[in-house]
Amino acid sequence: MERSRRWMIASAAFSLIVLILFTTMMDEHYMLLSFILVIAVLIPFFMRFERRKMETRELVLLAVLTAVAAVSRIPFAALPNVKPVSAIVILSGLVFGGEAGFIVGAMSALVSNLYFGQGPWTPWQMFAWGMMGLTAGMLRRTWWMNKKPALLAFGFIWGFLFGWIMNLWVVVDTAAAGNWHSVVLVYIQSFYFDLAHALSNVVFLAILAGGWIKVLKRFRKKYGLLDRK
C-alpha cells in the first residue's frame, strides 16, 4: 500500500509538471497537450489496478458512485460551477481511499461529458476531479479531515483549485501561454466562477456529508469494499 501511494504521488507530481511545462512552452498545440495529459492522468489507474485484483462488487460500487456523480451535474446545468459532483467525489475519496476517489472523480468527468459534450477540456476535468478525490483519500486518516468544519474548508479550497487547473486549459486554448498579462486576466475573470464552485462545495458537503459518510462506511465495513489498510 505504501509503495502504491508513493507511485500515486509520483504520478500526480508528473502530471503537474506536464501541465506547467506545456502550458508555458506551447502556444498552439493544445490538442497534443490534452492527449499527453490524458496519459499522465491515467497512470495512477493502471498502476493501482495492475498491483491488485479488484472484486466485482468493488467495481460495481465505483461504477455506481461514478454514475451518481456524473448524473448530479445535469440538474444544475443552468448554474455555472454549481454542481454536487465535487462533494460526491470528495466523500468517495474520504470513505474509500485515494484510488477510489481518483477513479470516481476522473470517470465522472468523462461520463458526464457524454451529456455536456466531449472535447479537449475533458482530460483537464478528469485530472482536476481526480486529484480532488485523490487528495481527499490521502488525507482521510488525518484527525482534522474527520471534523466537519475542516471537511467544508477542504471543499472550499478545492473549488478554487479546480478552477485554477481549468484556467490552464483556457490559457492554452486561447494561446495566452507566455503572455503573463493574459494569464493573470484569465484568473481574475474566473474568480466569481471559482467562488461559486467553492461555496457550492461547502453547501453540498454540509447537506450530504453526514448521511453519505454513514451509509458508505456501513457498506465498506459490512462487505469489506475497498477496505485496504
Rank of each mutant, 00 (worst) to 15 (best):
N146F: 07
V64P: 01
W169P: 02
E99R: 09
F35E: 09
V38T: 11
I157P: 00
L65I: 02
I17M: 08
D227A: 04
S72Q: 11
M47F: 13
F219Q: 15
L161H: 09
Q189V: 12
R218V: 14
N146L: 12
I20L: 10
F102E: 00
N201H: 04
Q118W: 06
A136G: 09
I213N: 02
R218Q: 05
L151Q: 01
M132L: 10
R141K: 09
A63M: 12
A109R: 00
L61Y: 00
S34N: 05
M1V: 14
K53G: 07
K217A: 13
V215A: 02
A198L: 09
I207R: 03
K147I: 07
L33K: 06
A106W: 01
I157Q: 02
N113I: 10
I188S: 05
L114G: 12
K222Y: 14
R73T: 02
V89H: 02
M54H: 12
E50D: 03
S72N: 06
M166A: 02
M54T: 05
L79E: 07
S190P: 02
G98T: 11
D173K: 08
A12D: 00
G117D: 15
A77H: 05
V186N: 01
E99F: 11
A12L: 11
I74C: 13
T174V: 08
G224A: 13
A70M: 10
L33T: 10
A77E: 11
P149R: 04
A70N: 12
W169V: 01
T23A: 15
A198E: 08
L168P: 00
L161N: 03
K53N: 15
K147G: 09
F76T: 08
E28T: 08
L225V: 05
E50N: 15
M131W: 15
H181D: 09
W144H: 03
P84L: 03
F160T: 07
F96K: 01
Q118R: 03
I20Q: 05
F14I: 07
F35H: 11
G224H: 15
L110A: 06
F154K: 00
I36W: 14
M166P: 01
M126I: 08
T23K: 05
D173Q: 08
L114M: 15
K214H: 07
K214C: 14
Y192K: 13
W143T: 10
Y187K: 02
L21R: 14
F193E: 01
E55Y: 10
G93W: 00
H197T: 02
T174K: 10
E55A: 12
H197Q: 13
T142A: 07
S200V: 05
F162I: 06
F156K: 03
K83Y: 09
I103S: 07
L65E: 09
A12I: 06
N179C: 07
F102N: 00
F102D: 00
K217S: 14
R218A: 14
V202P: 05
L114R: 07
T174L: 05
M126A: 03
S182Y: 15
W164F: 11
R140I: 15
M31I: 04
V184N: 13
A209D: 08
G211Q: 10
V183H: 07
P75G: 08
L16W: 06
V171F: 04
W144T: 09
A175F: 06
S34R: 03
L168G: 02
D227C: 03
Y115S: 03
V203C: 02
A128S: 09
